[in-house]
Design a protein around this nucleic acid. Structure first.
Length: 577
RNA sequence: GCCUCUGUAGCUCAGUGGAGAGAGCGAGGGACUUCUAAUCCCGAGGUCGCAGGUUCGAAUCCUGCCAGGGGCGCCA
């Protein structure tokens, strides 16, 4: 028996039936097994209709042949053919019981490790030095973190890294401002946004400052020691701020994972030389450009990426090329994942297209831009720094924690110091869940209400289900013997067991599509199935020891599924609420 | 102008070419002496932006249109 999902198993059985009956070769996925919520069906098979034309038979005939040749009497009741050729599949109770029981002894709850482990670099979070992280940074940070956890669990080697905005023209301005304020004036950059705005103000208004700032950039890029020392002050102060956010969010990024723009600076000239050597660079209006194939502008002109500006400076495209080159060539990664907003979509397509021409990317070395939608203000427009609508990330997180104190009910079992840790787990979980449960690629409207929600389709609902499970187990005061059989008598028990067996599919979908919301949806459904079970199937007062054992097993499995699922999203699952 | 994404219940969103389109929130009705009510149960609520097309079958694929967001040469 394979590890993995029930649906996949059924697909293999159907594929085998087709091989025997019609000499047709299809994969388990192509058998089109789908979960069904119709009465009397757990799954449905839709392959008969799609296959009918290819084999020159009518769909019901194909369905009949499949059913006749299906070797699955151990697993399913006699299949029923319905409508144009749907095959309804209902799992046998005994088989379902056996499948679910197998999970008890399986650390990975049926989730297989990948057969093709890859070395994957993930670029996420990417805040800017000397700017406070705002709510817009939330998505990259927690989506990237979820990818790291999911891919690591799947068995890949994951290298997280943080592409800090820590270099370039703004730093001349910032360093010059720091000089004016006097070195060691740390308190001035403790409020990073204010410091940035002051510098900007001077740049725009104070005579001579802009020129000094430009000269300072040259000094910085030239490696002037005094300038670098000031730059390090800015980076250090910013790092303390980033760390504060990452620690609160339990994000596994530290200064060791910084591969910011400054890191790639020494590679830029070389990168351009290599592009030139491959004949990919043209001079246009005094700037060095590459023209990736297939990208045109208005009037059909080719679309450029500027790798060296007419003033000799480098742009971010150059850094992005150096990044691809570094990770693929020096760090030998198989795959690069960029967790950067969708507005950068075309930019990355162009970077990747040229990287293929340059030979940095190929079939064995891939790069993917996993874009995410913009967080919008209530006016439906991007939250922008200068619109005054920006919400500091640390404020959001602080408010989320405070909010969870407020909504803790009197029935909570938790008091004292444990309550503080709990408030963090709940509040920050709610923020992460609110974001991760949206389709990654779509924009969404930010509201405090939704971010802090603790009822309905939220992480708290799932955490609460888990806490209730563990509360029952504590109340019963014993564990079921490992070999005690599962008995799926009630509908609620059956539904719950079936859900538990679908964890591998949910995780696989989340990984294949790099779509964490596939997993949040599954976890919510599982928690819902548990809630129904909770209302219908008493455990502490179960009629017999045998029934209690079986239900204890179901509880344990459910708790393990919920805890694992949440952990892969970076959300905690407290033992009591 | 070109490219790109989006349009599904009052609101926020799921939805893998498959059978009366699903959740949550909100509004309505009901269930606490509890295995923790941060919960559950019941009902209401839809021309899936519009019009064609492909298909046995379309919210899903294709074309056009409408509306909105984003991107489009020296910021990153």
């Amino acid at each position: 028996m394979l590890r993995g999902d029930v649906g996949l198993e059924l697909g293999q059985r159907v594929a085998q039936a087709l091989r025997v009956a019609l000499d047709v070769d299809i994969t388990a996925e192509e058998a089109l097994i789908r979960p069904s919520n119709r009465d009397g069906a757990d799954y449905q098979c839709n392959v008969a209709m799609s296959l009918a034309k290819k084999v020159g038979r009518n769909p019901r005939e194909v369905a009949t042949l499949i059913v006749e040749h299906l070797d699955a009497a151990d697993a399913i009741e006699t299949p029923e053919i319905a409508g144009p050729g749907f095959i309804n599949l209902k799992l046998k109770r005994e088989w379902l019981e056996a499948q679910a029981a197998r999970l008890l002894g399986d650390e990975r709850l049926g989730v297989p490790r990948t057969e093709e482990p890859r070395r994957i670099a993930i670029d996420y979070s990417s805040p800017n030095v000397a700017k406070e992280m705002h709510v817009g940074h939330l998505r990259s940070t927690i989506i990237g973190d979820a990818f790291c956890r999911l891919l690591t669990f799947a068995g890949h080697e994951v290298i997280p890294h943080n592409h800090l905005g820590d270099w370039g023209t703004p730093f001349g301005m910032l360093i010059e401002h720091l000089t004016d304020e006097g070195r060691g004036a740390d308190h001035e950059i403790s409020d990073l946004n204010a410091f940035y705005q002051q510098a900007r103000q001077k740049f725009d208004n104070e005579p001579g400052f802009a020129d000094r700032a430009r000269r300072r950039v040259v000094l910085l890029q030239g490696g002037d020691e005094a300038t670098l020392a000031l730059w390090h002050e800015l980076v250090g102060e910013s790092q303390r701020h980033f760390n504060q956010v990452y620690e609160l969010l339990e994000i596994g990024l530290s200064a060791d994972d910084n591969y910011g723009e400054s890191f790639y600076n020494p590679y830029l000239a070389d990168t351009i030389t290599e592009l030139q050597g491959k004949g990919l660079i043209e001079t246009s209006d005094g700037a060095l450009c590459v023209f990736p194939p297939g990208f045109t502008n208005r009037e059909g002109d080719r679309l450029p990426l500027i790798v060296r500006k007419s003033d000799g400076g480098y742009g971010y495209a150059t850094t992005d090329f150096a990044t691809v080159r570094y990770w693929v060539r020096d760090r030998k990664v198989d795959e690069l994942i960029y967790v950067v907003g969708t507005p950068q979509s075309q930019h990355f397509q162009m970077i990747f297209a040229t990287s293929k021409q340059a030979g940095w990317l190929d079939d064995a070395h891939t790069a993917v831009h996993t874009g995410f939608g913009t967080i919008l203000g209530s006016d439906g427009k991007t939250i922008r720094t200068r619109a005054g609508g920006t919400i500091k990330l640390i404020d959001l997180l602080t408010e989320a924690v405070e909010n969870s104190y407020k909504v803790m009910p009197e029935s909570s079992e938790v008091e004292g110091e444990e309550k503080d840790a709990l408030a963090r787990t709940i509040g920050l979980g709610a923020v992460k869940y609110a974001d991760l449960s949206n389709d990654r690629e779509k924009d969404y409207v930010f509201t405090w209400e939704k971010m802090l929600a603790t009822t309905g389709d939220t992480s708290v609902y799932i955490q609460y289900a888990n806490a209730r499970i563990l509360s029952i187990v504590r109340k019963v005061g014993r564990e079921a013997p490992q070999d005690a059989p599962l008995v799926l008598q009630e509908q609620a028990e059956r539904d719950l067991a079936l859900k538990l067996l679908q964890l591998p599919t949910a995780i696989q979908a989340a990984i294949d599509e790099l779509a964490p919301h596939k997993l949040t949806g599954y976890l919510f459904e599982t928690a819902t199935a548990f809630s129904t079970f909770y209302n219908n199937c008493p455990v502490a007062t179960a009629e017999s020891q045998e029934l209690q054992d079986s239900r204890l097993h179901l509880l344990t499995l459910t708790s393990r599924v919920l805890t694992l699922g949440l952990s892969l999203l970076g959300i905690g699952a407290p033992e009591r609420l």
